[in-house]
């Protein structure tokens, strides 16, 4: 019974939502948007579970002096400070309904001067990792890898003004060989064709996966084995 009820709900909701795509009339027309709203409401409440789990896992580590407990301390402190600053609007309009982002409030300051630079730093790491991954991956090991390598060269240079200057001497009749034009061609022809092929495969995979879930053939995500 515990497993049958979710399967029945999945089947009914899945089928009705598919039908509602084709029927704009009430009550079907707005079912999709209503279910989206229901999901968001559930997700908001589920955050309490997430926050609770975070405090429980890291609280345990601190209590038991787990080998990396100082990191847990930083996590819990960060969580509590941001939550209290936001909830009680410290330094801003008093009361629970005040503006969270009021200039000068503690939450706003933490957001601007701690959170923003930390996030930007993490994203900036990508540039370094792209460089090291490119160094390792772009090797002309075989014919396919060589084509990939050449394409990477053209794109990398084509995205810079240096690439424009490098081939700007070419006569007008050979302008298609200019690096920026080659880069645009690679992006809009072979890249786009490949992306679309992958997207078509993904769309079909999604259909099959969704049908397996709606029909109850796939039920591992419910914590149950398929029969």
């Amino acid at each position: 019974m515990r497993r049958q009820i979710p399967l029945v709900i999945t089947f009914i909701v899945g089928s009705v939502l598919i039908i509602s795509v084709f029927i704009p009339h009430k009550p079907f027309g707005r079912l999709g948007e209503n279910f989206s709203v229901y999901f968001d409401i559930i997700a908001v409440f589920a955050f309490i579970l997430g926050g609770g789990n975070l405090l429980r896992v890291h609280g345990n580590r601190i209590y038991r002096k787990h080998k990396d407990w100082p990191y847990s301390m930083v996590t819990v402190a960060g969580f509590l400070v941001m939550m209290i600053a936001g909830l009680f609007k410290i330094g801003g309009s008093p009361g629970i309904t005040g503006d969270l982002t009021e200039p000068g409030s503690m939450f706003e300051e933490l957001y601007m001067y701690v959170f923003t630079p930390l996030m930007a730093t993490m994203f900036a790491l990508l540039a370094f990792f792209v460089a090291s991954a490119s160094y390792r991956a772009f090797r002309a090991k075989n014919r396919e890898a060589t084509i990939l390598l050449l394409a990477a060269f053209v794109i990398l240079l084509g995205r810079t003004p240096f690439g424009v200057k490098l081939t700007s001497w070419l006569p007008g009749s050979l302008s298609f060989l200019e690096i920026p034009n080659l880069a645009t061609w690679i992006m809009s022809v072979p890249n786009m064709a490949g992306q679309r092929a992958i997207l078509i495969g993904i769309a079909l995979g999604v259909i099959a996966m969704a049908l397996r879930v709606i029909l109850g053939v796939e039920r591992t995500y419910l914590g149950a084995d398929s029969d």
Partner: peptide, 24 residues
Amino acid sequence: MMGPQTVAHIVIVIFIVIGNITFF
């Protein structure tokens, strides 16, 4: 920011070239 991006791209290209020379 296009200046720094241009130089960074060129440095990556140089590293890829060096990587391929050592590979060969």
